[in-house]
């Protein structure tokens, strides 16, 4: 069990501690909403990181699963009167099933063909949520009530703490996969499918499982976003979400353990910091993104790994495992 606490798990503990203290330092409900959204996007990005960063399968359907999760959660409550505690797991299972069904034919495709096919699926979902007004509530969406048990109802702060815990569990699983044999098999699929297959990796099964897992991460994130927004509407599945997701991937660093969290923090908070530039906000945001793409292809995680490596082991070029350990130790100082 000791190895569970090595390899960056100390960093997870630090992240959780900071995240749990954070609300005490915030002054407004708006700020609490912002930091809550960080964890939603972190969850979404973890799934995408496993799928694209590690396994190399690009999907443009993550925001669709994000939306389906939230819609399922809302509709099971609104239409069937289910308790949120039943609606939540059932919504996640529904998303997993949808992902498995569409993944089976789509994952035969590779690279940009896969991207286009998954994009087509998510455009269909956007159309469906907008136009099928009787069923989905159209562009107005559906309300999601605050979770209530007896006299107690979940406050915004409690929702935030719950999101932090869920995201932390998500991150532990995400990192556990990346650092063990499952992550190795996924990287093997990314690097060379025939090579992986000839070593006994069932490539189709690996791709499908990761696709479903990524959809589950997205669904959990979507439900969290629904609870924060107290509603779900077609914008959950629209383009800005996938753009944010891709930006998180670029800024945080693809295929790294902490990229999704670092990326989510930056992508949610940067527009707030850039707001003072007024009409130049988008321009500066775009420029920064360009700088990242050109000069920091491995994102902020990549930078931190290199800094950590330089600080602690100046002469050698350590492997990924030892580098991550270095960051953790560096961070603990």
């Amino acid at each position: 069990m000791r190895s569970l606490f090595r390899n960056g798990n100390l960093a997870i503990v630090l992240i959780v501690v900071v995240a749990l203290i954070l609300p005490a330092l915030l002054s407004s409900g708006y700020q609490l909403r912002m930091v809550s959204i960080i964890w939603v996007f972190a969850l979404l990005a973890m799934g995408f990181n496993l799928l694209y960063g590690i396994t190399g399968q690009i999907s443009m359907a993550q925001q669709a699963f994000f939306a389906i999760g939230a819609y399922g959660f809302a509709m099971l409550q609104a239409k069937l009167g289910w308790s949120p505690f039943v609606a939540l797991p059932v919504a996640v299972v529904i998303v997993a099933c949808v992902a498995a069904v569409i993944g089976l034919p789509l994952l035969r495709l590779r690279t940009h063909y896969l991207a286009m096919a998954t994009l087509a699926f998510s455009l269909m979902m956007v159309g469906l949520t907008n136009r099928w007004v009787d069923f989905t509530g159209g562009s107005a969406g559906i309300q999601i009530r605050t979770i209530t048990v007896g006299d107690w109802s979940m406050s915004r702060a409690e929702l935030y703490y719950t999101l932090v815990i869920v995201a932390a569990i998500g991150l532990v699983i995400h990192n556990f996969i990346i650092s063990g044999h499952l992550g190795r098999a996924m990287q093997a699929v990314r690097d060379d499918e025939t090579g992986a297959e000839s070593l006994g990796v069932n490539v189709t099964a690996v791709k499908l499982r990761v696709f479903v897992l990524a959809a589950v991460y997205a669904a959990v994130g979507g439900i969290g976003y629904g609870l924060i927004s107290r509603q779900v509407n077609p914008s959950f599945g629209e383009f800005p979400v996938i753009v944010s997701l891709l930006t998180i991937a670029v800024v945080g660093g693809l295929g790294t353990r902490f990229g999704p969290v670092i990326g989510a923090i930056v992508v949610v908070l940067a527009p707030q910091a850039l707001a003072r530039f007024g009409e130049f906000e988008t321009l500066i945001y775009g420029l920064c993104l360009g700088v990242f793409l050109i000069f920091l292809p491995n994102g902020l995680s990549g930078v931190m790994e290199r800094l950590g490596a330089r600080m602690l082991r100046p002469s050698s070029a350590p492997g990924r495992r030892s580098v991550t350990k270095n960051i953790v130790e560096g961070g603990a100082r």
């Binding site: 044999h181 190795r184 098999a185 990287q187 093997a188 990314r190 690097d191 060379d192 090579g195 992986a196 070593l199 006994g200 990796v201 295929g255 492997g319 990924r320």
Partner: peptide
Amino acid sequence: FPGMTVLQNVLMGFH
């Protein structure tokens, strides 16, 4: 697998 280390490549044989 170019994205992996020497050890990770050998470990793939144990998959």
